[in-house]
Amino acid sequence: MFSSKLVSAAELSAFLDGETDPSRRALLREHLRTSPADAQRLTRWRQREEALRATFAPAIREGAGPMAPLARSLDQKVFPRDRRPEARVLGESSRPAEEPIRGAVGGGIGALAIAGKRQRRHTLIVAAAAFLAGAVAMLAAIALIDGASRITALYTPAAQTSQDSH
């Protein structure tokens, strides 16, 4: 149905990495159903890359190893002390003067981007809690203001009329 000439090796490669344009995805799937050679090629690439990751997996298990102290000193530079990146923007005396302050925000974003799924979930929970706390505080404030204005309205008839006019 689809000639293999319509699908280049480059497109197949991008498909393997999930980088295919959405408009071409269905066509590629159809192509792979009808072209066993390209389907085989894709499988071969996928298996080879699994083997590649398996070959070099020991390095991940070894972790930082002797480089740990050096890595920690970079951690100190990029994410100094506290965990909340925003807090560092407000006057952090330990930072060298020449370092741009907005850099700290960038580092913070990086921290969020890097953080694993569990941390992301944690961040979400904290954000949701903060949002709820804010909402409750706002409602409380509104109720307070409302109550206060009602009390003042009771004692000052002028305020009552002005409120009615709204």
């Binding site: 070099f56 390095a59 930082a64 480089m67 890595a71 951690d75 990029v78 994410f79 953080a115 941390q119």
Partner: peptide
């Protein structure tokens, strides 16, 4: 979010070996 670089170092080592 602490020790991100330290945890990334294993990945850096893997990449460097390859």
């Amino acid at each position: 979010k602490r020790n991100i670089v330290e945890r990334l170092t294993g990945r850096l080592r893997r990449f460097a070996r390859a």
